[in-house]
Design a protein around this nucleic acid. Sequence first.
DNA 1: CCAAAAGTGTTACGATTACACCCATGT
DNA 2: ACATGGGTGTAATCGTAACACTTTTGG
Lengths: 223, 223
Amino acid sequence: MTGHGNLRNFQVRADSFECSVTTDIAVFGYVDGKLQILLTKRSVGDFTNHWMLPGGVMEADETLEDCAHKVLFALTGFKDIHFEQVRTYAQINRHPLKRVITISFYALVKPENHPLHLKGNVEEISWFDMDEIPKKLGFDHAQIIQDAHLFLKTNLKDRLIVGELLPQKFTLPELQNLYENILGLKLDKRNFRKRIFQMDILENIGEKKAGVKGGPMLYSYKH
Amino acid sequence: MTGHGNLRNFQVRADSFECSVTTDIAVFGYVDGKLQILLTKRSVGDFTNHWMLPGGVMEADETLEDCAHKVLFALTGFKDIHFEQVRTYAQINRHPLKRVITISFYALVKPENHPLHLKGNVEEISWFDMDEIPKKLGFDHAQIIQDAHLFLKTNLKDRLIVGELLPQKFTLPELQNLYENILGLKLDKRNFRKRIFQMDILENIGEKKAGVKGGPMLYSYKH
DNA sequence: CCAAAAGTGTTACGATTACACCCATGT
DNA sequence: ACATGGGTGTAATCGTAACACTTTTGG
């Protein structure tokens, strides 16, 4: 039991099997009262005719989070985005070129903070309403999006992770509409406000938003 | 923007960086009314003087789940265990030999179904009470255990994922004790029974367990 | 027969839901 | 002025938590 002859012992060795690692990022946005997801088409590589999530390979000196930041910046110019790890995908033939495992992340951004322009090998980039996602995506990205959206909905129940989806000053109807979009259902106005106020995370700015009937109050996050 | 000169485009290429992938499995057991975790010491490799989770490298033709099954069987003899993916760890220097990323899983087993014997390069193997885990574990396994335990507790709230931690026929006090151990708190007897009966997953065997005061009824899972 | 554990219902409380009217603003 | 959307409170319901005594069995 000790030593040689025992080549297959599952320990990591210098010559252990290796494969490439990528991160894919499901960036959710919120525009015109609709939850959206950011997709790209690439000019090179696999699935060139398919919309897909931004993603790319991890290098030797990067953590997964580093990689996600790097990739997202390179493909979209987005910076300083908060990510959360969702799940790891490792089906054997999920990538046509070679064995690749992918760790998915999700992020929430406000699209108007991040104008889209073509960078790197991105040929097209666009926001898609969640109910208008193209049928055929590259790789297993349809699955990854579905998992990330479920993760997002689950997390929204107790925490408030609205990232930067709203302007610094926003109204309660705007916030409620965002919740309704992420969760995919209608909420009662009064009950929603009760829940939010209980959390004690909003600050009443003391101003009213102009240009909107009813004169809604503006709020911001505390501190 | 098209073509060469653009070597760093984050697409997967034949020569993309690669690293080894391992799975680590947090196997929880339940014995003598205590929640436990299975740890091993290895005779070869890194951290040979440290207790650690069973784990090992993924090969080219294996999914993560395949790998977890293979590794657990090789190191412990456990077969046909149900796993759930928990999280992926990819800190750069988490493995002393080389860059390794690890996907963790958890499983629940009944230790008496799985007698421990030394297999593979396992030098020692033992169950540890959750509050008696050695301080210094190999790699980042303390973190992995903590995350897996939290995951387990969270999942227990709505679902019933007791795996095979109890005998086929068990009493409600036994089930309650298991819950209390996983969650780390005391539960009210009557409220617990209400919740369990509402789930409608237990079948009253119609026998009483002998050798126990009070003559508790035996139950099994439906179908 | 005594000690120890099993079994069993009801009440109180808090959280969630349902629901309707008046007020402020833009046009 | 009027149409549109914003703002507000209360009652009913449901789920959860608190609680004590009787029954069964082993020793």
